[in-house]
Design a protein around this nucleic acid. Structure first.
Lengths: 351, 351
DNA sequence: CTGAAAGCGCTTACAG
DNA sequence: CTGAAAGCGCTTACAG
């Protein structure tokens, strides 16, 4: 076989099979298979000749056939009900990132909030013999509209309520809130308010509790968190309450920790409109680190980042090890958040 | 077989095979297969008995095996370089929506802008014998970092530069721009400005040209479009230029058509800060209809929606028909936009 | 009307 | 060192 022969174009309309490679190399299919997989015993020369033939023919093994034999499809399903959301996206990127390196592809399924659609997708994935499933959502305190509790493949939950006995990954919201409040303290702020979303969200309470804890640990006054919507409008309304003249200027906060970035943006806009300076008079911190919002506020917003991509990676790796037969401790694992400092809090007093 | 027997739980750890169904029903695998697929001739009674057995055993055919035979995997690949982006998301939802109804699952692959990663993903998909590939991006004038021009499966391009001879779907940006400008005209606005993104984007010119065309058709003055960034900051800067005192109040626009929603938000904020009323004094229209932005502006923003989900659906259906062997006219197909009216333009003069 | 056989593309004991 | 055989789970001509 001349060594300057060109490799066949991948574009061949019908894929070349092992049988053809074997024929071209003058060996049996079994030998060809072994040569390419590094299995069996044979002369280095034979092995290399077969490999070279395969290369020239542009041979690529049919994974469907391999999967059938191996009982492993190198495929996983990713279930979400947050297609449009900003949460599942970075998460998915992380999942896919972790899995691609291991040669596994991911089926993306959006199940909306439709149990019938969810059921359909899960069955389709099972029929296609996925090795496992990752379920992601937009809230840790809500289930996807599907029962994944008794499947014959492992399931990992990320950012959504896990079934009992299953493994779930979430961000450490309490830790994230601590990061924010402690940052304020470090900057010398002492009258710290908290404006957050609806009481119906578990994270609202988790974050509020951490806020209280930190202040109490420092023997500072805790003002009751203001709960409302996850919106800019509510952020503006909250400013009207917090900075009312009735309260007296000295009663005004010098820092506001917000439950998400949209609230924070509303807060910053309303403060500016009242002539209150950010960060000179008041520091503001958001949650989510949604760049498109955080970078557009004036000044740019310091915000807690939940490290969703990392969370996705962990979820992917956890699933992989379950698929590989490694037992995993069931229960919820919390991953740390990080604070992304921009310009809405100012510099430390002596800084 | 007692009719009140419970169907086996789907959770059986090892899936039941056709062979087991056949054995339980006392027929051959061939007959069982035909019974379940509605093929072959047999008594209705036999067929029903086999079906009932399959149901009771919780039989689900192994798609890997079926695919191997049928040479069709009912699987497609979706390639994107816009994981975090708001464009590919609705688009993906549409694609997936169109395909799920046909029993096809989609592999999602984010190739970033990395040719090596792109190559890897394409090969993985091909190895898994996808029936076809949909390539989506964030710009019609940019290629994905992969060569998809000579694959052995059909490819459809959505919202990204198609290869010559391939089929591509994009939004009709000129039409969308017309929608916006004509809406202003209908409301009696006559001094319409256009603020858009960088000149390096093809859509910037397409939309600007349509803006000019409409005004010329109505013999109205065309002011040169202001090009800058796709950002709120640029929207604010543009207002400073458009509404400078030097120009004289009577030279101020009474409408601003913006190249995207972020620019529009900057424009609205800046106008409010200058005490210019929206929509009383100036109407504003954005592009993209990115709800999170459009609904948060004060007042809420009227915006051109590119119907990306519909575009995704069309892409999915186009691919399906190509996979089915139907020839498709190559070239770019443009899908209409629609105007989503909120409150940033006011009501018609006599309205 | 039903079943035995061949085969999709590959891998893996098992012989020689 | 290499090959023939059996088999993954299914489908589809082809006999009977």
């Amino acid at each position: 076989m001349p060594s300057d022969a060109e490799p066949a174009p991948v574009s061949a309309k019908t894929p070349v099979t092992l049988r053809e490679v074997a024929a071209a190399a003058g060996v049996s299919v079994a030998t060809a298979s072994k040569a390419l997989n590094g299995q069996g015993r044979m002369t280095a020369e034979t092995r290399e000749r077969i490999r070279e033939t395969a290369r020239q023919l542009g041979f690529r093994p049919n994974h469907l056939a391999q999967s059938l034999l191996r009982k492993r499809s190198f495929t996983v399903g990713l279930l979400t009900n947050d297609t449009y959301g900003r949460f599942s996206l970075p998460l998915m990127a992380g999942v896919s990132d972790a899995l691609v390196d291991n040669g596994v592809s991911v089926f993306l399924c959006n199940v909306e909030d439709d149990p019938r659609l969810g059921q359909m997708h899960v069955e389709a994935m099972l029929d296609k013999r996925v090795d496992g499933i990752i379920a992601t959502g937009k809230r840790i305190d809500r289930h996807l509209p599907v029962d994944l509790s008794n499947l014959r493949v492992p399931v990992v939950y990320a950012f959504t309520q896990p079934d009992p006995g299953a493994v779930g990954l979430v961000s450490d919201d309490a830790g994230g809130a601590r990061l924010a409040v402690e940052h304020f303290l470090r900057l010398g702020r002492r009258r710290i308010a908290h404006v957050s979303g609806p009481a119906s969200f578990a994270v609202v309470h988790t974050r509020a509790q951490a806020y209280r804890d930190v202040l109490e640990e420092h023997s500072l006054p805790v003002s009751e968190p203001l709960l409302g919507q996850w919106s800019e409008g509510w952020g503006r309304d909250a400013v009207a309450k917090l900075f009312s003249n009735g309260r007296g200027r000295e009663g005004w906060p010098d820092a506001v920790f917000c439950g998400n970035d949209q609230i924070a943006r509303g807060v910053i806009d309303a403060l500016r409109e009242r002539g209150i300076g950010v960060p000179e008079d008041v520091g503001v911190i958001g949650f989510d680190n949604w760049e498109i919002v955080a970078e557009a506020t004036r000044p740019p917003l310091t915000s807690v980042d939940m490290n969703l991509a990392a969370l996705g990676r962990e979820a992917g790796l956890a699933l992989l090890s379950l698929v590989g037969g490694q037992p995993a401790a069931p229960g919820i694992r919390k991953l740390p958040c990080r604070l992304v400092v921009r310009q809405s809090c100012g510099r430390p007093p002596g800084g």
